[in-house]
Design a protein around this nucleic acid. Structure first.
Lengths: 212, 212
DNA sequence: AAACAATACGACCGATCGTGCTTTTTGATT
DNA sequence: AATCAAAAAGCACGATCGGTCGTATTGTTT
């Protein structure tokens, strides 16, 4: 709870900057992001940015964290409102594809873009991205494991393998939706997981009839 | 056939520059590529580059074309030496994963990196990348269709869907192999397609026993 | 009203960016 | 040996990069 109007103003600026930085990062990259450009976009001065982050790298790290927050709010939280099991897996995938389709970010996916941008750029930013990626992978595997525990997926299913394939369908949707036909990409991403889950899940009523 | 030693020298420089540019592009991006850095890496002068390409954009386009050539030589040509059908599909996937595993390019995959870099950057480079991506997708679908025609995949298989899923497994391998555990990524990419093809192909002898 | 602190700004720095213009080096032609 | 063209280098330019510093603005506290 902040009572000081000054830091309240600072917080507003900070999140506004970071939100813009997340968007811009999917356009020109997290490294390609220019402080002058970012300042111009927001109508603030460049040196005003340095009042909040001591360096570009600090801002990049904060931008990654902000993107994680947005991902949590827009994809993970909605999925967690679905019941555990294949329905939650499906909800997660749906939320993800919907997020891409809503064109919230011009580049499609903040993490896919920045992961490829930094996977050969050693440093704190890369380390942060790798950590976030690892957590995301673990979360996906956790959801799959929950579905197994609920008896909605066979006990002998290869959990990391299935999690890998789910993620693969999503990443490819982000990639293709910006360079090829978007609707086709979304359809393939959805159909791919739907086919997969329907083939594995003993209860056909848990999943929708066709791809929505 | 070139007889002139001067243009022969030029050609040597050109391909040397482009090979280095392909590598560098997977590290710092096709846009992040600096002419001074590229010139230094090769021991030539910056202005020497302008003797071959009138602008940075021209060099970027040439770099994309060179990456296509390398992809053709290292992934497509080897696959085409396998017999049509599921074996050729498998050979393509194997060649691709092997290429990533050989760490030829630090960033993993030239096209994945640059596609995400340029998917929100309008211009000739993006257009070229989109065209190449479209051709690659069509080629994948062509190989799947061949397998159907050879009776090695069911006639009612959804061709673009399967091609999408094959590509997805590959892209994700490139992505994960640089930020997470590489061997796990390669294993999942291979196992994913092997499971898929073995489930679809009526002749089990056409595919290897386990993932190699 | 005065003192104070958080926020934001303008001006400026050295370095590097892509690019043009001119000159030198290298190899082929006669 | 002289001529000529291709390749490569030298040099300088305007713009932009991340970053620093001193100052002004804004809001709180007493």
């Amino acid at each position: 709870m902040t009572v000081d109007g000054r830091v309240a103003r600072g917080d507003r600026t900070r999140t506004a900057v970071l939100d813009a930085a997340v968007v811009l990062a999917t356009e020109v990259g997290l490294h390609g992001l220019s402080l002058a450009q970012l300042a111009d976009t927001l109508g603030v001065s460049k040196s005003g940015l340095f009042a909040h982050w001591r360096s570009k790298e600090a801002l990049q790290l904060a931008t990654v964290d902000r993107a994680v927050e947005q991902w949590q709010e827009r994809i993970i939280d909605p999925a967690l409102r679905a019941p555990r099991g294949v329905r939650r897996l499906w909800a997660l995938h749906q939320a993800r594809i919907d997020f891409y389709a809503a064109r919230v970010l011009p580049g499609g996916c903040f993490f896919a873009s920045t992961d490829f941008e930094y996977n050969a750029r050693p440093g704190p930013v890369r380390d942060r991205l790798a950590e976030v990626f690892g957590r995301w992978t673990a979360f996906l595997e956790h959801l799959v494991r929950e579905a197994v525990a609920a008896g909605e997926l066979p006990a002998d299913v290869d959990v990391p393998q299935l999690a890998y394939e789910i993620d693969a369908l999503g990443i490819t949707a982000a990639m293709r939706s910006r360079l090829l036909d978007p609707d086709t990409a979304y359809r393939h991403a959805r159909q791919g997981l739907l086919n997969r889950l329907r083939a594995l899940c003993p209860d056909p009523t848990l999943l929708p009839e066709g791809p929505s």
